[in-house]
């Protein structure tokens, strides 16, 4: 087993390589997602532990560094999931002992505006998400570049998501006073709503209103637009 796992030196070398190559807008995805010891070493770019690489949003990330333990037992190959989302390897894989490091171009649409601008992170559906915690019954207004598509995500934080028999939490989304969409969160999961924006001014006001008869569950949301 020790031969299949990275040493401290492997981690330090991989972190050093990232320090010399990473640039703003990059992020590091560890794989398997449990290999979070990387947090002790990697400081050159935000470190993500997404579990579904094909579906993860990677908001604002253009280049993703895949830092993986390819010989870890039962670890699935992450490259297929990245290819499935249209990502392509940007260069050859580098090896640091039992660690592999490879940059991937996500070919993601360019970020137009981060509407929720969250500094905090919360766990929803077992993944730390950069989202804004909002009390039920409250609303948040934001102004930003409209772009082409509004992406909206929301979910119940932590274990309360698994409370049974609770009414849904409903988020109504408005732009310039007109309704854009409604997302109902009726249980666990990071719920998604992507809406094509009607043509109009480049800068717009957005409003997210959260309501539910049950106000006790911690709730967070994230919204952004892409061109």
């Amino acid at each position: 087993m020790p031969l299949r796992l990275p040493s401290e030196r492997d981690w330090a070398e991989a972190a050093g390589a990232l320090r010399s190559s990473a640039r703003p807008g990059d992020a590091v995805q560890i794989w398997p997602a449990w290999a979070e010891r990387a947090r002790m070493f990697v400081d050159a770019a935000p470190l993500l532990a997404e579990e579904d690489l094909a579906q993860a949003d990677y908001v604002g990330v253009q280049r993703l560094w895949l830092l993986s333990l390819p010989r870890a037992p039962y670890a699935r190959n992450p490259q297929g999931a990245l290819r499935a989302r249209g990502a392509t390897a940007a260069s050859q894989e580098q090896r640091f002992g039992a660690l592999a490091l490879q940059p991937w171009d996500l070919h993601a649409p360019q970020l137009a505006a981060d509407l929720t601008r969250a500094d905090e992170e919360h766990e929803v559906d077992y993944v730390a998400r950069r989202c804004l915690r909002l009390a039920i019954g409250s609303r948040i207004a934001s102004r930003g570049a409209a772009g082409r598509i509004l992406h909206f995500r929301a979910g119940i934080i932590g274990e309360r998501a698994y409370d049974k028999g609770r009414p849904p939490i409903v988020v109504q989304i408005f732009s310039g006073g007109a309704p854009l969409g409604v997302l109902a969160v009726d249980g666990p999961g990071w719920r998604k709503l992507d809406v094509e924006l009607p043509s109009g001014p480049e800068e717009r006001d957005f409003l997210f209103a959260v309501s539910s008869p049950d106000a006790a569950r911690p709730f967070c949301l994230q919204g952004w637009t892409t061109r």
């Binding site: 087993m1 796992l5 990275p6 290999a35 010891r37 947090r39 002790m40 400081d43 470190l47 333990l69 870890a72 905090e120 992170e121 919360h122 766990e123 730390a128 934080i157 932590g158 274990e159």
Partner: peptide, 23 residues
């Protein structure tokens, strides 16, 4: 949820120490 809660409270995502068994 406790780990992001700690990041938010401390303003850092970097652990100081830890027990890692076979990584």
């Amino acid at each position: 949820d406790r780990e992001p809660e700690t990041w938010n409270a401390y303003g850092t995502r970097r652990p100081a120490f830890g027990l890692y068994l076979d990584e």
